[in-house]
Amino acid sequence: MDRRHPTREQIARLVLSPDAADRALRAHLEECSTCARLAASIKRSADLLAEARLSSVPRELAEQTLLGLMHQLSEKAAGQSAGAPSTEDRPGAYERLTGSLREVWAALVADSLQTHAAPCRSGTPPPRMLLFETEELAITISLCPGEGADRRDIKGQVVPKEGTGLPRDGLVLAVQGDQQWQSPVSAFGEFRLEAIGAGADDVSILLGDTRVRLRLPA
């Protein structure tokens, strides 16, 4: 037996590319327990790492879960600041997160294109007015240029077409790639998102067990 121990790299090469290993090295490993243990350790690490590239989560599921978690966190924060019951005690929060969000797309039914008479703020052009509808809700949105390049502000209101009540703790989210902006929905259905990316055209309104989605026009 060759008493000169192979280098760590030689052992790793044997483990990682067994075909490339020479006979003398194999013979050494069969008789040297120290090197054999090192080879086994390196092999175990490499094998586990090779299997650790797990499949990614379907994008839709990942996004829906993130939305739900953010909603959950905002409810928790709102509950703490208002001295309300904890999230766990509120009915429906869990259902809203775990897959029971009913997704409804709101259709664009009116677009001023030409800007509204009242300006957003002094020195800026008037807002563009949009009206979206679902079977149950009407959503008005005004779009203004926001502070900073490629930014815009959204002011909006969501109201039920029948009755007066909206579910508590509504939340509005706008998404652009990895960025997300959010706003609570007030008791009057109002919300406001400021300086959102101009490309953040995917807007979700979480109301009760419903996620109302709408696509802002370019």
Partner: peptide
């Protein structure tokens, strides 16, 4: 190659 071998050995030790 040598760095990978060293790192895999370290990882093996941590696992142990």
């Amino acid at each position: 190659g040598p760095t990978r071998a060293r790192c895999l050995e370290k990882l093996g030790n941590l696992l142990q």
